[in-house]
């Protein structure tokens, strides 16, 4: 019964994700098709003057650019299904290879920021709720609400001013020091270049987790079983450990997994500020320079990334929470 439920849940999810992905591909393709970018010009780039009219027409014909949009889409979709996203015009490499390489370095950045913001946000939320109404609570709330209205990239700029320019602790921008090959980078240097972007990126996530955790814990603290526990003399850390933690941990973890969308968007900004060579910076480059295959590839990839996060969050609820696992209607 249980596994059967799980399987039907997974099948339903997969169908939904599949329809959304197909629609997303179609819409993105049509949007780019309508855009003023001339794919031939974007491909040739600086050599534009040396390429004749006839040659341009031949390139267009080679790519099937002279055919109606729906036919072009079908051709593109057919190769995407086979795993061929085309060739990036900026990097002159297969799109999947570029995305894979860039995503690997983004993943380190996003992973570090994700863990940091989750832990910090959870701790702040717990502190605020346990000390409800005191100055600690007010401070945490004020901090979170202010952070929620702060532009990410501005925080990055401030960190850059203070820690890189004034204190000189960290390098200014660039994922790799000048004159050093990316492969020759030591782990120490790498971490040094990672710290500021990771802190910048983690700052956005803190507010969300902290405010939700605070609210959840307040709900738990006003429940009958906590009242009973208090009547027996439990308080402070013991009370939190026995009755609070388990009830608020799962919502906080799932919330963290559903924040992949903001995480990706934040990474775009943080990487741009610190010139960190990840997928975010590549997204900006692809957009600014009209690299259509790469941009479409990134759009689809980012959607998969967000879906993965949401799916994990759903699965955690189904698998970990004993109340949901035992089934039955609520």
């Amino acid at each position: 019964m249980q596994t059967k439920d799980l399987i039907s849940f997974m099948i339903k999810k997969s169908i939904r994700i599949a329809t959304l992905l197909v629609a997303l591909c179609l819409i993105s393709f049509l949007l780019i098709y309508m855009s003023p970018i001339d794919p031939v010009q974007a491909y040739i780039g600086a050599d534009m003057m040396r390429v004749g009219q006839e040659q341009r027409a031949r390139i267009a014909e080679h790519w099937g650019l002279d055919r109606p949009p729906l036919q072009q889409f079908m051709k593109w979709a057919a190769s995407v299904v086979k795993g061929d996203f085309g060739t990036s015009m900026i990097y002159r490499r297969p799109v999947l290879e570029v995305i894979g390489k860039r995503f690997a370095s983004s993943l380190v950045l996003m992973g570090a920021a994700w863990l940091l913001s989750g832990l910090l946000g959870f701790i702040l939320g717990v502190l605020a709720a346990m000390k409800e109404g005191t100055w600690v609570d007010r401070l945490v709330k004020w901090y979170c609400l202010t952070l929620a209205s702060t532009p990410t990239f501005w925080v990055g700029l401030l960190l850059l001013i203070v820690f890189a320019v004034w204190l000189g602790w960290f390098p200014i921008g660039l994922g790799v020091p000048a004159g050093v090959l990316a492969e020759a980078l030591t782990v120490g240097q790498y971490i040094k270049h990672l710290i500021l972007p990771a802190i910048t990126l983690s700052i956005i996530g803190v507010a969300n987790v902290a405010l939700h955790t605070r609210q959840k814990l307040l709900d738990v603290l006003s429940s009958d079983y906590v009242l009973f526990a208090r009547a027996r003399g439990e308080k402070g850390i013991v009370l939190f450990w026995r009755h609070g933690l388990r009830n608020i941990a799962i919502p906080a973890i799932t919330l963290q997994f559903t924040s992949f969308s903001e995480l990706f968007g934040g990474a775009v900004l943080a990487e741009q500020v610190f010139s960190y060579p990840g997928l975010g910076q590549t997204t900006v480059q692809a957009g600014l320079r009209g690299d259509v295959p790469l941009l479409l590839g990134i759009v689809i990839f980012s959607a998969l990334f967000v879906f993965t996060g949401n799916l994990i969050a759903d699965l955690i609820y189904v698998l970990v929470d004993p109340r949901i696992r035992q089934g039955g209607a609520l």
Binding site: L20, F260, S261, E262, F264, V299, S302, A303, F307
Partner: peptide, 11 residues
């Protein structure tokens, strides 16, 4: 909601 907000804006 399926793609990051910023990516949608860029697109």
């Amino acid at each position: 909601m399926s793609i990051p907000h910023l990516v949608a804006l860029i697109l």
